[in-house]
Design a protein around this nucleic acid. Structure first.
Length: 373
DNA sequence: ATGTCC
């Protein structure tokens, strides 16, 4: 277990095997964040990478105050996994792509919008940009048949993984907070803290509902039924007691290890893993939320556009299909721009933080139909 | 990341 946990400074751990590449800038950001007033300890996940000031793929545990800026704009971002009635091989990729069409605009046919969202100037049901996606996946390898069987009795059924968040709502909440309080955080048990937390909770519920609407509208277009198997947030702050200390656990691109089974996806050209978390304080009860970027967004097009056409990038090494008619995004989210998922998974497995249940393989990845310039 | 920014 020891050689996959790097202690890079006092109260700063990183879960990563020796072969896991992590940028110096991300480690610096992690150490800097650990110096914030009230910070007790921080933990970098194997997908740690630099963000705007604060790193992504990390958990932060503080006492007495918490930091909305650490959660970021996409409050409630997470992964929802659905079982579908579609089965591998029974339906062609052409048909799936054609039936799916364009889901970039919010659906106008939402049956019962929960009343708490009725007055919001944001509509649920869209994926958004960046690393968000919805992906149809197929079971590839099973490591724990009994645990998988409890979730997915028919292993031929395709799965739908939705990665999205609270969209404009979380953005507006963070903007409003930063305008009023900057990056100094909020003292607990104050009206300001209660005000933020109440908006934050609304964003968590909206993000989960957004993922549900996305999955349901995709299933509807495919004339399929389905069922939500799990929905787990990786951008949030919540009260926690760790090693007897009461405080605030921030997760920024860090999957909770204490909320049941989770999916940790690789890039669109790589596997995703369904895993059983083994909660541990050294990782602040958290796990990686994906493979983690290898290249900065800005450098991806320059590195790839001489070698690959849009058409080539729309197919992966697995033969899966990618719907992404935004050229910048197509390059930014290319498999080459991400670390391989197997080192991320094996780092956590060697550290005793997860037990893999099954490996999933992409079939069809939806990003966007827009912005083809 | 953002019904994004021109």
């Amino acid at each position: 277990m020891g050689n996959t946990i790097r202690s890079v400074a006092p109260r700063v751990n990183i879960i990563a095997s020796a072969e896991t590449w992590i940028e110096d800038k991300a480690i610096q950001q992690l150490i800097t964040t650990a110096q914030l007033p009230g910070m007790v300890s921080v933990s970098g996940m194997p997908d740690l990478h630099p963000g705007r000031g604060y790193p992504i793929g990390a958990a932060f545990f503080s006492q007495r105050r918490f930091y909305p800026a650490l959660v970021g704009n996409d409050i409630g971002c997470g992964m929802a996994l659905w079982r579908t009635d579609l089965t591998a091989g029974k339906i062609s990729l052409d048909k799936l792509e054609k039936r799916l069409g364009n889901i970039d605009e919010p659906p106008d046919e939402i049956n019962e919008l929960p009343s708490e969202f009725a007055e919001l100037p944001y509509s649920p049901g869209t994926i958004g940009g960046g690393n968000h996606f919805a992906e149809l996946q197929q079971l590839d390898e099973i490591y724990q048949p009994a645990r998988l069987g409890a979730l997915l009795p028919d292993t031929r059924q395709l799965l739908l993984l939705v990665h999205s968040g609270s969209r404009g709502l979380g953005q507006a909440i963070l903007e409003q907070h930063v305008r009023a309080f900057g990056h100094r955080g909020l003292e607990q048990d104050t009206p300001e803290a209660a005000g933020y937390l109440s908006q934050h909770q609304l964003a968590l519920r909206f993000a989960a509902y957004n993922r549900q609407c996305i999955a349901q509208r995709m299933l509807r277009r495919w004339h399929s039924d389905g069922e939500a198997l799990l929905d787990v947030n990786h951008n949030l702050v919540a009260p926690a007691v760790i090693d007897g200390v009461s405080g605030w656990l921030h997760r920024k691109g860090a999957t909770p290890a204490d909320c049941g089974l989770v999916v940790i996806p690789g890039s669109r050209g790589d596997y995703s893993y369904l895993v059983r978390p083994l909660p541990h304080a050294v990782s602040l009860f958290s796990l990686a939320h994906g493979a983690g970027r290898k290249w900065m967004r800005a450098e991806c097009k320059g590195r790839l556009d001489q070698r690959y056409s849009m058409q080539q990038l729309a197919r992966t090494a697995f033969g899966s299909r990618v719907i992404c008619q935004d050229k910048q995004l197509m390059f930014q989210e290319a498999p080459q721009a991400y670390k391989p998922i197997d080192t991320v998974i094996s780092s956590m497995e060697q550290a005793g933080l997860i037990e893999p249940i099954a490996r999933l393989k992409p079939v069809l990845t939806y990003k966007t139909r827009g912005n083809a310039q």
